Amino acid sequence: GRREQTHRAVFRFIPRHPDELELDVDDPVLVEAEEDDFWFRGFNMRTGERGVFPAFYAHAVPG
């Protein structure tokens, strides 16, 4: 299936743990799952990396 952007990063996120996903402002993100406690699991379409990040670091883009 197609891999389409669902969210846009609005803040820079620096990972502190190996499973976290680095984000830079305006990165296109494909959110794949909602984890507990307001974290998303997703794919950074700019870097090709996958991981978790706080949900408020990314805003949904119009679908």
Rank of each mutant, 00 (worst) to 15 (best):
G1H: 14
G1S: 15
G1M: 15
G1W: 10
G1Q: 13
R2H: 14
R2M: 15
R3V: 15
R3G: 13
E4T: 11
Q5P: 06
Q5E: 15
Q5F: 06
Q5K: 13
H7M: 12
V10D: 07
V10Q: 11
V10S: 04
V10E: 10
F11D: 07
F11C: 04
F11S: 05
F13T: 05
I14A: 11
I14P: 00
I14S: 13
I14Y: 12
I14D: 09
P15I: 10
P15F: 06
R16V: 09
H17M: 14
H17R: 15
D19Y: 13
D19A: 14
E20Q: 15
E20G: 07
E20N: 10
L21S: 05
L21M: 12
E22G: 14
E22P: 14
E22M: 12
L23N: 02
L23W: 01
V25G: 02
V25H: 03
V25R: 10
D27K: 02
D27I: 08
D27E: 08
P28D: 07
P28G: 09
V29H: 00
V29T: 03
V29P: 02
V31G: 03
V31W: 04
E32C: 10
E32V: 13
E32H: 08
E34F: 11
E34T: 10
E34C: 07
E35Y: 06
E35P: 01
D36M: 12
D37M: 07
F38P: 00
F40H: 03
F40K: 00
R41D: 08
G42C: 13
G42I: 07
G42Y: 04
F43S: 05
F43N: 08
F43T: 07
R46H: 14
R46A: 15
R46W: 09
R46L: 14
R46V: 09
R46D: 12
T47I: 11
G48K: 06
G48C: 08
G48T: 08
E49C: 02
E49K: 13
R50G: 07
R50W: 08
G51Q: 02
G51I: 04
G51M: 05
G51W: 01
V52H: 04
V52P: 00
V52E: 03
F53G: 00
F53D: 01
F53K: 01
F53E: 00
P54E: 02
P54H: 01
P54F: 05
F56C: 00
F56R: 03
Y57D: 00
Y57T: 04
A58H: 00
A58I: 01
A58C: 12
H59C: 04
H59F: 04
H59W: 03
A60M: 03
A60R: 08
V61E: 11
V61L: 09
P62E: 10
P62C: 01
G63F: 04
G63H: 03
G63Q: 09
